[in-house]
Amino acid sequence: MEALTLGPSGTYSHRAATAVADEVSFTESVTAIVEAVADGEYDRGVVPVENSIEGSVTESLDAFTEYDVAVVRELITPIRHALLAQGDDFEVVASHPQALAQCRSYLESEYPDVDTEAVASTARGVERARADPDVAAIGHPDTAGEDLQILAEDIQDRSSNATRFVVVAPASQRSDAGGKTSLIVYPNVDYPGLLLEMLEPFAERDINMTRVESRPSGERLGDYVFHIDISAGLYEERAQAALEDIEAIAENGWVRRLGSYDTEHVLD
Rank of each mutant, 00 (worst) to 15 (best):
R73H: 09
S95N: 05
P78M: 00
V72W: 09
Y67N: 01
D68I: 00
V69F: 13
A63P: 11
A82L: 03
S105A: 12
L75G: 02
H96F: 06
E59W: 10
A101Q: 12
A94C: 11
E108L: 09
A94W: 09
D68V: 01
E91N: 13
L75P: 08
L84H: 02
S109L: 13
I76V: 15
S109Q: 14
I79W: 02
S105W: 01
V93Q: 01
P78N: 04
S95A: 15
A63D: 04
Q98Y: 11
V92A: 06
E74M: 12
D89E: 14
H96T: 06
S105E: 14
G87Q: 06
A101M: 00
T65Q: 09
S109C: 05
F64A: 07
E110F: 10
A94M: 09
C103M: 05
V92G: 02
S105T: 14
S105R: 13
D62A: 14
V69W: 11
A101E: 11
Y67F: 15
L61D: 04
G87M: 01
A63W: 09
E74C: 08
A99G: 10
E110R: 15
V71T: 14
E108M: 06
F64Q: 09
L61S: 05
T58Y: 14
E59K: 10
D68C: 00
H96R: 09
A70F: 11
H81Y: 09
E66H: 13
H96D: 14
E59D: 15
L84K: 01
A63K: 11
G87R: 10
S109V: 07
E59T: 15
F64L: 15
R80K: 12
L61Q: 09
L107E: 05
L100A: 02
C103K: 03
L61E: 04
Q102V: 10
A85Y: 08
E66K: 15
E66D: 11
R80S: 11
L83T: 10
C103Y: 04
D88R: 05
F90H: 03
D62Q: 14
A63R: 10
A94H: 09
Y67G: 03
R104D: 15
D88Y: 05
S95R: 04
